[in-house]
Every structure is written in structure tokens, then in C-alpha cells.
Amino acid sequence: MNHKPSQDGFFDDPNVVRWILRIFYGICVLLVVADFIVHRHIYTELERIPAFYALYGFIACVLLVFAAKALRTLLMRNEDYYEAPLDKEDIGQEKK
């Protein structure tokens, strides 16, 4: 196993990543445009908002991440909060 980071992977090339992101942004724009062209079935009033699903997905995820970050200050503890890490030797002693 080689532990030295190397730059030999396909996704290590910044150009590849840039192109992937460009295509991705392009699809996002197309999806919003499609929302105005395609006639969607409307089940609830909320869905009348233009590009409702796109907006909802984006806002939901941003809020989710911010809320989760805030929760970290409340919930995050040290890794051995519940119990100190045990070695196998300790278990042996417990059995004795």
C-alpha cells in the first residue's frame, strides 16, 4: 500500500473537474428552463411556484447543512465520551 498522495487519477486533473461541473451547471439550467416549457401536473398549490422542486431541493439542503453544523456545537463530543477505548488486553483482564 502506497501512502504517498499522487496525482495519477482521472479526477485529479482540474480540467476534468471543471468540465464535469460545467456540464452539471448546464443541466441545472436546462432543468429550470424545462420547468417553464413542460406542463406539470399540479397536485398542491405550492407546486404552482415556478421551479418549485429545484428551489425546494436547493434551500432544503443548504438549511440542512447549516442546521447540522449548528447541531454540532450542541451534540458533538470527544470520541471516547461514553467509554475510554479499550485494548484487547483489558478485555482479557476483565475475563479474569
Binding site: F24, I27, L31, A51, A54, V62
Partner: peptide, 19 residues
């Protein structure tokens, strides 16, 4: 069409939020 389009919109913009 509605289901497919709305689901793809939801997912792509969630991904956009991540990016």
C-alpha cells in the same frame, strides 16, 4: 413526465447545494 422531471430537479439542485 411530471414525476420524472420534478424528481430530477429536486436531486440536481440538492447536488448543486452540495457543490
Amino acid at each position: 413526465l411530471t414525476h420524472t422531471l420534478t424528481q430530477i430537479q429536486l436531486l440536481f439542485f440538492s447536488a448543486l447545494a452540495f457543490v
